[in-house]
Design a protein around this nucleic acid. Structure first.
Length: 298
DNA sequence: AATGAGCGG
């Protein structure tokens, strides 16, 4: 592509032709010669209708003008405020007032822009691991390294998935258990093992439900509009109390919202309030459904 | 219509 730039006369002091100017002096005839003039796209009118005017050089060398009328996508239109649409019918002013300048001010980019969602398939993070990557082969071999820290079983489940994880006391054969005595530098067996204060001997456990993971107090939200994002949910639900997690299910392929998500509350009572208030609540032109979530299936 | 992802010693 050739881009012709106009320079102010003062900048044009050198008599020596610049290489960039040479092409313009060649023998292509007037205007665009054998080359079709660039495509011109008009601004959409209040109905979102645009005109695309393009030129084509036919086989016989004659120029053909092609005018196409298109309507911009409904979605894009919906995002324009009425005011913005109205502004588009205003007469041009400023630099755009001159017809030719206007054509130069707006150009159509043919550059392909890939919109990437972090962690979406095909994103860089996924591409790094080439097939045959030694780490990828670790799948089966990794099972050998997988030793449950609660029950000691090898190659079956991770600590977090242990069927005994909520049982107290842990069964025989328990390995790597936080010591029941406060760790000290002199006790060789527990050397280097950090025991959080809440787990230490004599710690006050009143009012603490020991939970590995806060999947309780989990609320399922369905009928979300497709452009509801996690921060929106956070805003909406945190008015009821502290929220430990929000999640929206996205289609792995398209990156589109699947229209449902989950909100976890720190306090069950707040989750109850949220369900009571927000189920049936109109949000973003849809009626939300807010219910207790079923436990996650794995 | 619809019940989540990823992280590991």
């Amino acid at each position: 592509m050739t881009i012709a730039m106009e320079r102010p006369a003062s900048a044009n002091q050198s008599t020596k032709p610049r290489w960039g100017d040479l092409e313009d002096d060649d023998d292509r005839g007037e205007d665009y010669g054998y080359f079709a003039p660039p495509e011109v796209v008009t601004e959409p009118d209040e109905h979102g209708v645009k005109k695309v005017i393009s030129y084509k050089i036919k086989d016989d060398g004659r120029k053909a003008k092609i005018t196409t009328t298109i309507r911009i996508r409904k979605l894009a239109k919906a995002r324009l405020s009425k005011r913005a649409i109205e502004r588009r019918s205003w007469p041009k002013f400023g630099d755009a007032a001159n017809k030719d300048d206007g054509a130069r001010l707006t150009m159509v980019s043919t550059e392909e822009i890939i919109i990437e969602r972090p962690r979406a398939p095909g994103s860089k993070a996924d591409d790094i691991k080439a097939p045959g990557d030694p780490l990828a082969q670790l799948g089966k071999g990794g099972a050998v390294l997988m030793v449950c820290r609660t029950c000691g079983k090898k190659g079956d489940h991770w600590t977090s998935k242990c069927p005994y994880k909520d049982l107290a006391p842990p069964p025989e054969g328990f390995v790597d258990k936080p010591t029941s005595e406060a760790p000290s530098a002199s006790s060789g067996a527990t050397k280097g093992t950090y025991v959080p204060p809440s787990q230490r001997q004599g710690a006050d456990r009143s009012g603490q439900e020991m939970r590995r993971r806060n999947d309780e107090n989990s609320v399922r939200v369905t009928n979300l509009s497709e452009d509801t994002r996690e921060p929106d949910l956070q805003d909406l639900f945190s008015t009821f109390g502290p929220v430990s997690r929000v999640y929206i299910a996205y289609d792995q392929k398209t990156g589109m919202s699947r229209g449902f998500g989950f909100v976890n509350f720190v306090h069950k009572s707040d989750a109850e309030k949220a369900i009571a208030k927000l189920n049936g609540y109109g949000y973003d032109n849809l009626i939300l459904r807010v219910e207790w979530a079923a436990p996650r299936t794995n």
